[in-house]
Every structure is written in C-alpha cells, then in structure tokens.
Design a protein around this nucleic acid. Sequence first.
DNA 1: TCGTAAGTTTCCATATAATTCAACTTTTTC
DNA 2: GAAAAAGTTGAATTATATGGAAACTTACGA
Lengths: 111, 111
Amino acid sequence: METKKKKMKMMTLDQMKDKDIGKIGTAERDIYEFDLRMEVLGDMIKSVRKERKLTQEQLGELIGVQKSQISKLERNTKNVTIETILKVFRALKANVKFSVEINESEFKVAQ
Amino acid sequence: METKKKKMKMMTLDQMKDKDIGKIGTAERDIYEFDLRMEVLGDMIKSVRKERKLTQEQLGELIGVQKSQISKLERNTKNVTIETILKVFRALKANVKFSVEINESEFKVAQ
DNA sequence: TCGTAAGTTTCCATATAATTCAACTTTTTC
DNA sequence: GAAAAAGTTGAATTATATGGAAACTTACGA
C-alpha cells in the first residue's frame, strides 16, 4: 500500500463532484460517497477542510489538537478510530453517513 | 449515552428496511444507511450477522477472534477502529460505504 | 427443569492510536 | 528570493482499543 507517487493525491472532491450521489435536499448540499478505506478518508478530511477554507492549525483549534495531528490524519499514517473521524467531521460541520450493503446471495454458510 | 432500556435494542435491519436507500443493482441487494454513530454500528454488526445466520462464535472464527470480542463489538463497549469495522463486515460479505455531506452555507468561519 | 448453546462480563496483557513538541520542508506572498 | 505561513516528520508519551481466558448469565430445546 505504498506504491503510488505520493505527490498530490488530492483527487477526492474534484473528481467526486462528478459521481456525486446525493443532491437530496436544498440547493447547496453536496454528498460524497466512497468505499470506506483509510486512504480515502484522509483525502476527504483534507478536501472538506479546504472547502471550509481552514488551515490545519485552525481545524486543530476547533477540535483541540495540534496541527501536526491534523496533518497525520489527512495523510492517514495510521488506522483511525470512529470517534476521531466524528470529531473531525463534526468540527467541519459535515454529516457523516455510513452504509452497509449486502447481497443476499453472496454468502456461503459453509466455511 | 446510557439512558435507554438496553433490553433488545435491535431495531436496525427491520426498521431500516423501510427507509432503504439503495436498491441499485440486481434483485437481492439491500443497502442500509445510517448516521455514523457508535451505538448504531454495533447494532448493524449484529443485524448483518443474524442475516447471515451466524453465531458470534462463528463470526469470530471467520475473523480469527474470540466470541467475546464479537460481543464487545456488537454492544459497542468501546470506540472502534476503521480496520476493525472493515474486518468484520468483510467477513460478513457486506460492503461498507461512507459518505460525507456538507451544506455549503452551514459554516461560519468565525469561531 | 436440566443441559447445552449462545451471549456477556471481568480481568488482564499487549499493541497501537492519539497526541505533543520541536525541528524540518514546502508553499505562498510580497 | 527572503520571510512568513502552512504543512510534514520523528521521537516520545499517554490513553485506549484489541484480544484471550474463564467464569458467568441468558435463551432455549428436549
């Protein structure tokens, strides 16, 4: 999981704006959906933060952590806890949804 | 976060089947979406596990952990790591998606 | 109502996520 | 192109999630 170039991977919002899933509510709401994967999560934080015109330091203040911590979250150096995710997106006034998709067939009981 | 009765909170799949968001693909696919919150996550695991007709012990075997661990996850005694969530739902052959919703307006820059 | 299977709880160890600080690098601005 | 601002990195520390074992409780079928 370290094969990519690493130089600006920042594709999320821009690319995602196309395959935008939602447009449910009022005028100005955007929804970005993606398979839950660590890498993407980090990008998402960064994207939304930029959308909100905040520096890492400012976001850090909102949450109560150092800018270095935000940097780490965005660059997903690590596995992350749900609480952490919520803390961040709450500060960014973003709503986080989660969905589980099951194919009834797909499952073989035998192991 | 400990005000409820605690006796069978198991509402997820049954209740959720109504406000079913997806129905995207082929015949038998179900999608359950919910606000990311710890409590609900545990219920979701339990629901899907039951859907798959597995005991906690069996699910544990699939993942490589003790049944007590599964119990803990379902009763969300703890905060949880993304990796753990993925491990569990992967074992349950469920696809996990994640979405972030932002209201452009909603944000006041001043703090 | 007994016995078994399923689920829960507690105690404990270990791994690792969260975090800071400070130095460093990159980007931006003038 | 120098100075300032923004972002990154590494080392160290603290907090806590993961996990096992075993004893316990609950559910459930005969």
